[in-house]
Design a protein around this nucleic acid. Structure first.
Lengths: 239, 239
DNA sequence: CCCCGGCCTTACTTTTACCTTAATTTTAAG
DNA sequence: CTTAAAATTAAGGTAAAAGTAAGGCCGGGG
């Protein structure tokens, strides 16, 4: 498993045993650095609570106010923070989550689950910031770009808009890009009832699609016919 | 407790008992709408996976492939998705989280915990996104400017004020500017109850909106019809 | 209390963009 | 070469959306 971000983690805990466990788990998962700190309040300045960092708290801190500490830090930063707890106590779980913790994990936990949950939180917190400009889901075919949410096809000679049927068909092909999609399967995703007889209808729509996404519709480069089987949307890589 | 966002939730589950439970919990927590769907694959088009929506899956779907479905949807949308499971099985939890679920909650769960976890996820996913567009509260369309706070539309020939319905509809379109919004989705954001005969009602309001924001209502430049799909508020850039 | 005006809804007709049909031509496999 | 599959046209057909007008609801003011 690989993490998406170059994340550092500050572990607040007193039991060296669990620190080591976390270090092992998280290192294996690709996190770059794991630091332990006995007294987080003092060490706070050292670990800037910035972008690719996160905090893991052990609920059972010696002075017993892990929640207070968490609340305090939360006011200063929105970095991911999560609790580890020795015992599964409903009240504490609600309290922790209510204070703004991103998760609350009770021991014994599966190492892999910790990693997955952590990765998920990091992804949600940082992904939106990073991918703001390219958040759109687009299909790129050479010089042509299709945006499914807006239904716009951008080409070198102007923009075109997809009709409902074209949209449905192209989306299906896109979802199976690189694989052959049978005519039957295509029909089922664009029509409610099974389209009796006239397979021709599908062909006409394919033609219109080609007119919109292909440079030369009669010499398709992307929306390919697989005779006797169906159609295939070629992947950029293996054309 | 109050939620931060105007969140709708699609509940995928077969047991009416749990649907009702969720509805109760989430309504009390301030979520505006909860919809159930027996077959998500078929219903997918109906619930545009747009900004303030989320999906809750029951792992034990009748056909047993809730994971597959989740994975499929995840490819298409980054809206929050979480699993509910009847039994606490490590493998499934890992699988669910690994596929990109935002959380995996096992029954019996505390209602309040569900709400807290949900709110947390929504906050993390939408907070960063929403602060951006809502920073400015004006919609600029060529020579026309719409101020949402005051509901005033400034045009070259005088000011007009938006009615309640027009305001709600335009806001929804604005929040999804550049993307196609289904008629259904629009209705749900402008009417509380499900509107029975809304076929024309929506259209009439769209018409009135066009009369206020378009230069020539019969040749719309901004509020575009996407036949068979919905409406779209064009972005200045790709018109 | 009743009328008035703004807003929303309903009902109906008209328009049009998209889809289907069908007939012909081209392509490619055996 | 033969033949089935797919492509290409272009002409209607059709359902979705637009347009229009009348009626209903509700709150404010006379």
């Amino acid at each position: 498993m690989k993490t998406i971000f170059d994340a550092k983690l500050l572990v607040v805990d007193d039991e060296p045993e669990i620190i080591n466990l976390l270090k092992t788990i998280l290192h294996q998962a690709g996190f770059t650095q794991v630091i332990s700190a006995e007294n987080c309040r003092q060490a706070r300045e050292l670990f800037a609570l910035e972008k690719p960092n996160g905090v893991i708290f052990d609920v059972t801190l010696p002075d017993g106010d892990g929640f207070l500490l968490m609340q305090e830090l939360r006011q200063q930063s929105h970095v991911p923070m999560l609790f580890l707890s020795a015992r599964d106590e409903d009240e504490n779980r609600l309290l922790g989550l209510g204070l703004g913790a991103d998760d609350y994990i009770t021991k014994p936990f599966l190492p892999r689950e910790l990693v997955l949950r952590l990765s998920g939180i990091l992804r949600r917190v940082y992904q939106p910031l990073q991918t703001q400009p390219l958040a759109e889901e687009c299909l790129v075919l050479g010089t042509v770009t299709v945006n499914f949410k807006s239904g716009i096809v951008k080409t070198s000679d102007g923009d075109k808009t997809l009709t409902a049927k074209e949209h449905a068909l192209l989306k299906k092909l896109w979802e199976n890009q690189g694989h052959i999609v049978t005519a039957d399967s295509l029909c089922r995703s664009a029509w409610d009832d099974d389209l009796y007889g006239y397979e021709n209808t599908l062909m006409v729509h394919i033609r219109r699609l080609r007119e919109k996404i292909e440079v030369d519709p009669s010499q398709p480069q992307y929306l390919l016919t697989i005779r006797g089987m169906g159609y295939k949307l070629a992947k950029e890589s293996n054309r």
